[in-house]
Amino acid sequence: MIPLLEFDALRVTLPGPRGTRRTVIHRVDLALAPGSAVGLVGESGSGKSLTARSVLGLLPPGARVDGDVRFDGASVPAMRPPELRALRRGGAAMVFQDPRAHINPLRTVGDFLTEALVSVRGLTRAAADARATALLDEVHVADAARRLRQRPAELSGGLLQRVMIAAALAAEPRLLLADEPTTALDVTTQAEVMAVIDEARRRHGLTLLFITHDLALAAAVCDRAAVLYAGTLAEELPAHRLATGATHPYTRALLAARPDPTVPGAKLRAIEGRPLPADEAGPGCPFAPRCARATGTCRTERPEPRPSGDGRAACHHPVPLEGSAP
C-alpha cells in the first residue's frame, strides 16, 4: 500500500549566524498508511513541529529540505505554489496549539468557517451557513447557530479549538495534522477535544499526524507512536506497546518521568540533563550524554534505526524487554 504521507530521510537546515546552517531535523523516516494515526512525540528542540510543518511547506524562510516528504506520492518540497495551495486547501489541514493566533479576532466564527466554503468550494451563502452549522454539530458544539454569530474572544479555548477542528474538516482533507492541539487547555477540556479529534478522524477515515510531548496522550489516540530526540527518530512502535514494548532508553526515560499517578507506589524517575536541540547534536547518538547505557560507540557513531519487536529503535544498546533474550 502506498503511504498517504511519507518522510523519506527528511533533513531540514535553517540559516544560522554568519552564513552557517543550523540543522533542525537530522533524519526522519516515517510512513503513514491511509487512515492510520501516528503520534509524533518529543520535547523542545526535537523537531516535531517542524516535521509536521514540512508537510504543508510551512517551514521558516531560508529552510533547506533534503530527503523528501511525499503526500500521496507527490514530493512536497518539489511542489510549485499552485500545487501547494491545493494541498493546503484540500489534501491536508492543520490544527495548531494556539487557535487565537490563527483566527481573525474581528470576524465572527461564522465568517471564519464559511469563507473557504464560499470562495474555494463555490457554495452559496445559505449552503455555506448550513454546512458550518453541521460542522459545529459534528464537533459537538452546542447551540451552533449562536456560536456562528460570536467572535473568537467570546469563546473559551476549548470551544475555539473545536471551531478550528470544524474548519479543518470543512476542507474535507485526507490528512489531519494536529500540532499540540490541547497543550494550552485544561485537562478536562483536553480530554474532550482529543475525543472530538479521535471521533472525527475515525468517522471520515482521516490519516492523523498528532504532534505532542505527552506519550500517554499519543498512545490513547494513535495506532503508532514515533519518538523524536534532537531532530532524529529515536523509536517507532505500535502505540499500544508504548508502556511495555519500548526499547530505546529515551522512550523509557520519558515513560519513567510520567508514571501512572493512579498506581499506588509508582515512582517517578528523572534522568539528568536537558533535551538537546538538534543543532547541538554531535556525531554520535544525540541521547548518549544523558543515557545510562551509553558506551564509547554511542558517542562516536550515530545509530541507524533497527527493527525492534514490532517497531524500530535507533540505539546501539536497546533495553531488553522482559521475557526476551538479552
Binding site: 478536562t188 474532550e192 505527552d214 499517578p261 493512579t262
Partner: peptide, 26 residues
C-alpha cells in the same frame, strides 16, 4: 487519585492521560 469522591474530582482524575486511558467526551 484512586477513589475520588466528588464528581468533579472524578472528572479531573478521568482526564489524566495514562497507559490504557482513552479520551471521552464527558
Amino acid at each position: 487519585l484512586t477513589a475520588p469522591r466528588d464528581p468533579y474530582t472524578r472528572a479531573l482524575v478521568d482526564s489524566v492521560p495514562r497507559p490504557g486511558w482513552k479520551p471521552a467526551r464527558q
